[in-house]
Amino acid sequence: MFKKSTLILLLVLGVVKLNAQDKWFKQQIDEKVSVSFPKQPKKVNEISYGMRDSIGVIFTNSMVNLLKITQLDLETLNSEIEKQQFADDFVTGIGTSFPKYKFEKAKIITVKGQRAYGVVARDEESKRNLYMNVCFLDGVSYSLTCIVPDGISIKDKDLFLNAISFKK
């Protein structure tokens, strides 16, 4: 009985999760990547899209051509992103764009079959948490960032941080 109840609960949660994302807006980032947002984002600049929901949660996506910035070839870059030291240096670089946030150590993870970094930071002054997945594909980093004020539901955070689709 317990196994059956657990299975039913997992199926219901999966259906709720899928239905929630079905209503999201799918934004094409480039020819290989799209990201789903809770509603249609605005183009912030040539490399970023973003939106704020009705309860104050900010969702953004940015892409950066790391081959141009690092001047590494693709094979070397792919090797480097597997190393914790590179991940730590990468997050230190991100931190310069968010000076009020204190960043935790990056976690090397996989998102949708691609190498990624899981990043968490806290701005104590403004009482906000930053959650970011930075995914790597063909020398480009694609960051999905969610900034959540204290006391606000983070139910869409995990959906958004994994709402990236890759075409190979």
Rank of each mutant, 00 (worst) to 15 (best):
K39N: 06
V44I: 13
K83P: 03
G56K: 06
F25C: 09
L77F: 15
F86Y: 12
Q85A: 14
E82P: 03
F86V: 02
L67T: 00
E80F: 07
V91I: 13
I81F: 07
K43F: 03
L67A: 14
K68F: 09
K32D: 09
M51G: 01
I29E: 04
V44H: 06
Q84N: 13
K23Y: 11
D30K: 03
T70R: 14
K42Q: 10
D30Y: 01
Q71P: 01
P38Y: 05
S48W: 06
E46W: 02
K23F: 12
P41Q: 05
I55R: 08
Q85E: 12
V91K: 14
K43M: 07
N78C: 10
K26V: 11
K42F: 04
S36I: 07
E75Y: 07
Q71R: 14
Q28A: 14
D53I: 06
N65M: 08
L66K: 02
K43D: 06
E82A: 13
Q28F: 08
T92V: 09
D30G: 09
Q84Y: 06
K83R: 13
V57N: 04
T70K: 12
N61S: 11
N61R: 02
P38S: 05
G50A: 04
K26R: 09
L72Q: 15
W24K: 05
Q85K: 10
S62K: 04
T70G: 08
S62V: 05
L74T: 01
E46T: 09
K68D: 11
W24Y: 13
D53N: 15
Y49C: 03
D73K: 04
E82T: 15
D53W: 06
K26C: 10
I47M: 13
I47N: 11
N65C: 01
F37N: 06
Q27N: 05
S36M: 13
V57C: 04
Q28K: 14
M63P: 00
F37S: 00
K32G: 11
I29Y: 03
Q71Y: 05
T60C: 03
D88C: 15
S54I: 01
Q85P: 03
S62H: 03
T92P: 02
G56A: 10
L72P: 00
I47E: 14
F59S: 00
G56Q: 04
K43I: 00
Q27C: 05
T76Q: 10
Q28G: 10
Q71H: 12
P41W: 07
F59G: 01
Q71F: 08
K43Q: 14
E31K: 12
D89W: 09
V35S: 01
N45Y: 02
K23C: 13
S48T: 13
T92Q: 10
K32R: 10
I81H: 03
S48I: 03
Q40S: 08
V57I: 11
W24V: 00
V91R: 05
D73M: 07
K68N: 12
S54F: 05
Y49Q: 00
E82M: 15
